[in-house]
Simulated assay, not measured.
Amino acid sequence: MTRNTDVRTVLVTAATGKTGRRVAERLAARGFAVRAGSRGGGTLFDWEREETWGPALEGAGLVYAAYYPDLAAPGAVEALSAFGRLAAGAGVRRVVLLSGRGEPEAARAEEALRQAAAGVGLVVVRAAFFVQNFTEGALAEGVAAGAFSFPAGSVAEPFVDADDLADVVVAALTEDGHAGKVHEVTGPRPLTFAQAAAELGAALGREVRYVPVSRARYAAELVGYGLPEPEAAWLAGLFASLLDGHNASVTDGVRRVLGREPRDFADAVKAAFAPGAGV
């Protein structure tokens, strides 16, 4: 594999996802050569097929790594270790890794990448729960129908706007002074899911209800949507563990990186549901 890399060439993994798409768009607008990595179309990249990683990395100087389904998933440590070795061998200069706040398993995957990619400037961006999970993600269908369920009880979460996250990632990729750092990004205030439902309803002009459910009930709902039972149980458990209150605090990550305040939940959902927004 060649080590002749170009810092204007960026591999963006999961480039059709909520964050990858935004990162790719911002980099392209700045004149970077973007390799939009995905399982279909663009640059072939699949986290479950290691043979796709090397060709996607070849010649790229920068990488945005958004691991699917989550850094806390079984097998993530091994995958990130292998990916790190390939990235280092390919001569990649910097990797920005998307991670989650307060996830011990994700932290293990971060460290595996850090050790395997010695010499590569690694930046970790740990994000709160995305606002866009309500507008273009797993909960969007329920929001559109007027009610959504989730195993979060009355716990508050400082939801982060995916556009803010993308701006942080692009800054970490393209500006000096970020290598070796961990940036934790949140929105400006914590909201319970019931409060989030009220904000969503206000933006839509009609009632939206939050229905708290148990971990087991949510897993059963996911199975009903077609998710395999083991994956549904793991995902429900992950959400329940993250939304137990330990992530309710707000950080200044967005302000420190971008020099401005993060966008509020209410403003983000109003923009998402505005006429012509495409949601």
Rank of each mutant, 00 (worst) to 15 (best):
G146D: 06
G42H: 02
R49C: 05
E199R: 15
E51N: 01
A147L: 14
G153S: 12
L242F: 11
N247V: 15
V182E: 11
P212L: 10
A128T: 09
A232P: 06
A73H: 15
V7N: 10
V279Q: 05
A88K: 09
G245T: 10
V182Y: 02
A116V: 09
G37V: 04
L97V: 15
G17S: 15
F265I: 12
D267S: 15
R39E: 05
V269I: 11
P188H: 09
S149P: 09
G187S: 12
A140E: 11
E58Q: 11
A232Y: 06
R260T: 07
N247S: 14
A87G: 10
V250C: 04
P69E: 09
V125A: 06
G91L: 09
L258Q: 03
A76L: 03
Q132V: 10
K181Y: 00
V10T: 12
E231S: 12
D176K: 14
Y68T: 15
Q115P: 00
F129W: 15
R49T: 10
F130M: 08
G42Y: 03
R22S: 04
A272P: 02
R101E: 08
S149K: 14
A166G: 12
P151L: 11
Y218Q: 02
E111V: 06
A82M: 02
Y218M: 05
S38K: 08
V223C: 12
A248G: 15
M1D: 08
A216F: 01
A117F: 07
G245H: 11
V169E: 04
R206Q: 11
G20N: 04
A90E: 01
L243D: 01
D167I: 06
P188F: 09
T174F: 05
R30T: 00
S241R: 15
A118T: 13
V257T: 12
A172N: 04
A56C: 09
E175A: 15
A198F: 01
A36D: 05
A236I: 07
V143L: 09
T5V: 15
A127K: 01
Y64W: 14
P151G: 10
T135A: 11
G205I: 08
Y225D: 05
F45S: 04
P212Y: 07
S99K: 03
L191E: 00
E229Q: 14
T186W: 08
T19H: 08
A156M: 03
L57T: 00
G102Q: 11
A127D: 02
A197E: 05
R217K: 06
A152G: 15
V182H: 04
P74L: 06
R3C: 11
V23C: 06
P230R: 01
V124W: 00
F32E: 01
A106C: 13
